[in-house]
């Protein structure tokens, strides 16, 4: 064996050697758990008779039974619809607010910009459960200062934890917590726009509004796509806000959102197999929706480039 050959072996093998750590981590903490979840979702526990005693339970192959069960479960579907309704409020309101606030902060005449930026961003630093608890106290008519003021003014006090008000109440928590983060993302990309572009626009006689609509928004479109993408994922996985509000009201059921149903199956009923199937369905739906959106956004921007 010549030394040249040995050297070539080392060079050729090097990339794979570098890949080893990440491959191991990927396999251990990503592929393996996902594979196990899928395996669980294809099995079920079969009980015999009274189910008392040592050999009463067996784990058997279930095929797609758990998936069929989840997809035909009216609560799972109703939960998905509730989450879509919730998302239809949260995503546009949150991103709209984030964009407007970012544009305002980026305008030339703004005062106290760093302070305002921090103040808007701060709610994002508050854990979701804490935020939900905080708002929950403010919503409960008997302890809410808003209800108190409305009552004193002789105005009707809406119960925000009931009916349609619940969507507004939940959305408000998400918007309050998420706007700051999205605003920072958009604001950062606004700052990256070179000053010459504005200069040229001003020379052409563009008003600040025109600059915002015609230059700034199109140029931060990639950030908008990104924040939209994150928001969709966060919406589909909504869990902590409704779970935290649940004890405060009869309006939130234990299966209000699909993820809550998964939690309930796993830790309420102890049926990890049904829970695994539900989790896989949510993961696939999230993947399809978010990447579907990304594709749509990309093809649009390519068309625009072509024009």
């Amino acid at each position: 064996m010549t030394s040249a050959r040995r050297r070539s072996y080392g060079v050729k093998g090097a990339p794979y050697a570098f890949l080893v750590p990440s491959t191991i981590l990927f396999a251990l903490f990503f592929a393996l758990p996902i594979g196990y979840a899928v395996w669980l979702s294809l099995h079920k526990v079969q009980v015999k008779g009274l189910g008392l005693g040592a050999d009463a339970r067996r784990e058997v192959w279930a095929g797609f039974e758990n998936y069929a069960g989840a997809l035909t479960d009216s609560e799972f579907v109703a939960g998905a619809l509730r989450v879509l309704g919730y998302g239809a409020i949260v995503v546009p309101v949150m991103l709209g607010l984030a964009l407007v606030l970012a544009l305002m902060l980026d305008s030339e005449k703004v005062r106290l910009a760093p302070f305002t930026r921090l103040a808007i961003f701060l709610p994002y630093a508050i854990p979701g459960v804490v935020a939900a608890l905080l708002w929950g106290f403010l919503y409960l008519p008997d302890v809410s200062p808003f209800s108190f003021v409305l009552q004193r003014l002789g105005l009707p006090q809406p119960d925000l934890l009931d009916g349609g008000g619940l969507y507004a109440a939940l959305s408000n928590i998400a918007v309050w917590g998420g706007t700051g983060f999205n605003m920072i993302v958009i604001y950062t990309s606004l700052r990256a726009i070179p000053a010459e572009v504005y200069e040229a626009a001003k020379l052409d006689g563009a008003t600040p509004l025109q600059i915002a609509l015609r230059i700034k928004i199109p140029m931060v479109a990639p950030s908008l796509v990104l924040t939209f993408f994150f928001s969709i994922i966060a919406t589909l996985q909504v869990f902590s806000e409704p779970t935290t509000l649940k004890p405060l009201t009869n309006s939130v059921s234990t299966t209000w959102s699909p993820l809550m149903k998964v939690y309930q199956d796993a830790f309420g009923k102890g049926d990890i197999h049904a829970a695994a199937a539900g989790a896989v369905i949510i993961a696939v739906a999230t993947l399809v929706l978010s990447f579907g959106f990304l594709r749509a956004a990309n093809s649009r921007s390519k068309q625009e480039e072509a024009r």
Binding site: K12, Y16, L19, I24, A27, L28
Partner: peptide
């Protein structure tokens, strides 16, 4: 060689998993 390395990586991953 490539195939070999891939096999080694997998084997290491599996062994590590098993020891854990």
């Amino acid at each position: 060689n490539t195939k070999h390395s891939r096999f080694v990586a997998t084997a290491v991953a599996v062994t590590l998993g098993a020891t854990t």
